[in-house]
Simulated scan of single mutants.
Amino acid sequence: MPNLLFVCSKNQWRSPTAKDLFKNHARHQARSAGTSDKARIKINQKLIEWADVIFVMERRHKELIKQRFPAVIKAKPLLVLDIEDNYQYGDTELIEILKDCLSEYL
């Protein structure tokens, strides 16, 4: 069962919404984290090691992760979803965008 990690800045809107799409999923487990010092759950080495695939909302999240965890991240797919910080948690438009971006995993 592949582990999916979703990352945004503060881990309060985009990445938790993405994680929640995978609640009780038959094939995947999902967690979420943020890159900011103010994130509810901060990205860390343990989460990166847990993940089989890492999805970030913006390119800057990818760069931050590559800088902070260069040794751990080399063997992991790190995919940019290109979803700007324009949505609240559970926003229906955000959910539709995520479903479209993640269709092969859902």
Rank of each mutant, 00 (worst) to 15 (best):
P2Y: 15
P2E: 15
N3P: 11
N3V: 11
N3K: 13
L4V: 02
L4N: 00
V7W: 00
Q12P: 01
W13C: 05
R14I: 09
P16G: 07
T17A: 04
D20Y: 12
F22H: 02
K23M: 07
K23W: 04
K23P: 04
H25L: 08
H28D: 09
R31F: 11
A33M: 07
G34L: 00
T35W: 01
T35A: 05
D37Q: 12
D37R: 10
K38M: 14
K38R: 13
R40N: 08
R40P: 05
R40M: 09
L47E: 07
I48L: 09
D52G: 03
V53H: 02
V53T: 09
R60I: 10
E63R: 11
I65G: 01
Q67K: 15
Q67S: 14
F69T: 01
V72T: 09
I73G: 02
K74C: 08
K74S: 14
K76E: 01
K76M: 04
P77I: 11
L78F: 10
L78M: 13
I83G: 01
E84Y: 15
N86G: 07
N86S: 12
Y87T: 00
Y87C: 00
Q88I: 05
G90H: 13
T92F: 12
E93W: 13
E93D: 15
L94Q: 03
I95R: 08
E96F: 10
I97W: 04
L102V: 08
S103F: 11
L106I: 14
L106A: 11
